[in-house]
Structures are given as C-alpha cells and as structure tokens.
Simulated assay, not measured.
Amino acid sequence: MILVTSAGGKAGRAVIAALVARGIAARAFARSAAHSEALKGIGAADVAIGALDDDAALLRAMQDIDAVYHICPNASPHEVAYADAVIAAAEAAEVPRLVYHSVLHPQIETMPHHFAKMRVEEMLFSSELNFTILQPTAYMQNILGERERMTTEGLYRVPYPVETMLSLVDLDDVAAAAARVLTEDGHAFATYELVGTAPLDQNEIAATFAAALGREVRAEAESVKAWQARARIDGMDEHTVTVLTKMFVSYAGDGLKGNPNVLGWLLGRKPTTLAEFAARVAVQPKA
C-alpha cells in the first residue's frame, strides 16, 4: 500500500491513477472528506482524512504502508513545517521508503516556493529515511487555463515576455515515473529531474496549440499587475499571488530550462512532447 499526501490535488490524483494502473493499492491522504468520493472513483483503495500538521492523523495514515509519496499543496507557506511532520511520522511508523515531490531547480532563491523545497530536500538528507527526490518542471496541464481563450479568441496569454524559455512536462509522465520509483528497487537516495521538453518559448507553445486546435493562436504577454488583478478577482489569496508573482519575474529573467534525458530513462520511452499533449487535450471535453 502506497500513501499519497495532498491526494485531492491534480498531482496527487495523477499519482494515484498511475499506481492503480500498475495494480498497486493506494491510500489517499486528504484534508477534507469532500475529496473521498472522487479519490475512490479513480481507484484509491482507502482515504485517510487529516491535515499535514496533524501528527496523530499522519501516524494513523502511515500504518501498514510500504512507501509514502509526499506532495505539499502548491505555493504553501507551510512547506517546511508540513514536511517536518511527514518525515517525523514516516520515521516513527518505520515506513520503508519516502518519495518527495520537489521541483526543478529548487536552488532558485528568488522563487520562494522553489527555495522552500530545497530546505525540505536538506531535511531528507538528515533523516533516517530511504528517500528519493523527484524534481518536475512546469506542467503542460498549466497551459489549459488558457485553453478557452485559445479556442475562442486565438490568444495565449502569459504574465511574462513571449520570448521566455520554459521546459515543460506532462503530469501523466511525472506520475508514471513516480509510480515506478515507488514500486521498484534501485532508487534510494537518488534525485531525478523530471523534464519533458527542451526549453520552448511562448510563441512555440502557441504555435503547437494552434496546430492541434486547427486555428491561429498568438502568444501575448500581459503585465504582472493585470495578472494580479485577475487572480484576486478569481479569489486567489495574497500569499499565493505574491509567490506566483515572484515566479513570473524569475521566469522573465531566466526562464526555467531542463533536459528530458532522465525522465526518458525512467519511463523507458521518450517523454510526451508538447505536440502530443496538445493533440490529446484538443479532443477532450472541457473540464
């Protein structure tokens, strides 16, 4: 049985689905019981409810567990505290393996949510656990926030220059790699960068979706202030607005560039290309 934390999020759901596809039982750890039905619907064998700072709930969830896949909620201000609690519970429960869902280039101090993950990696080095660290780059799925605009207006809008170079990865590939690392020997104390594409600029991303959608799509930069205003209208909290703003500024300066070789080795095939992803989602119903 594999325990997946923050299982109600898109990464947690993807990892559970990948484990189920391999015939592996997964226990979902979610903050709210409202996620239970959906998690069982994708095949979770069990759902444990609790917060990531609830020591007793974590310890209960880790009983009879073969490995933990730890994901912190995106841009959480409690990344380090949550990881401290998860690591302590895993040590107390004598869990044989912990795999940590980190991020590509956690060394970048100008992105606080990246830098916090490097602090967690450091904690793992000092722990008694058999651990593996996975470092995925930005998900292709993040582009889907602009899917309707691309379809109706032919516009792909980003809060950084269109020349910004980003390496992307299909979340399904991340989940498949996670499932392999969780269930196979030979990955102890490894750190793997999970990158699906060479760096792409935003014009290339727009052109790729244009080909899949069968219509012209143009990339356009919007100001960070305009993005902030929309995010607040949509109900985003101020901490997340601040963290993502710093990420966009970092992207504008340096991009986020990686290499797909490691992911290809883990998958035993080439990672999903952006063209393959765009073709797949172009025919899927809108969420």
Rank of each mutant, 00 (worst) to 15 (best):
Y160F: 13
T132H: 01
F115S: 14
Q284S: 13
T240I: 10
F189T: 06
P73V: 08
G253Q: 09
A188C: 03
E91N: 07
R269M: 10
D66P: 00
A206E: 04
M236G: 01
E121Y: 03
D234I: 03
A212H: 09
P96V: 14
G253S: 07
M118F: 07
D173A: 03
A190C: 09
L274G: 01
I108D: 01
D234H: 05
A38P: 03
L58V: 06
A25T: 08
F277L: 04
L39K: 03
R215L: 00
S127Y: 10
D254Q: 11
A229C: 02
T273R: 14
I16A: 14
G41Q: 09
D234N: 11
A279S: 12
G196Y: 00
T152M: 06
A279T: 12
S102Q: 14
M118W: 08
L171N: 04
H78A: 15
E153I: 04
Q284C: 13
I133K: 10
E121N: 03
V281W: 00
V103A: 07
L144H: 04
V281F: 02
A26Q: 12
E79T: 15
P199M: 11
P77D: 07
Q202D: 07
P112C: 05
E79W: 03
P73M: 09
T110D: 13
A18M: 10
V95S: 13
L104V: 05
G9P: 01
G196K: 01
A45T: 06
G186A: 05
L166P: 00
L168W: 15
H78L: 15
S250V: 09
S223L: 10
A30T: 13
E193M: 09
L124C: 11
C72A: 15
L58C: 10
A28S: 12
A221Y: 00
R269V: 08
I2L: 15
Q107P: 01
S6L: 11
V158C: 01
P112N: 10
F115Y: 15
A90V: 08
G8T: 14
A221R: 04
I71R: 05
A212E: 10
D237M: 05
L144R: 12
E238N: 05
V249P: 00
F115R: 15
E91W: 07
A221W: 02
Y82K: 06
T151F: 02
A17D: 14
M123L: 15
I133C: 14
H114T: 09
A179Y: 06
A51E: 11
H78N: 15
R22L: 07
H105F: 05
N130P: 08
A11Y: 04
A226Q: 08
A279P: 05
A56Q: 11
T164Q: 04
Q228G: 03
R27T: 13
N130G: 05
A210L: 09
A252Y: 00
E220C: 00
A226M: 04
L3R: 05
A206N: 14
P73K: 12
T110E: 14
S36V: 13
S102F: 11
T242Q: 07
Y69S: 01
P159C: 02
L263E: 07
A45H: 06
L52K: 13
S102T: 14
V181D: 01
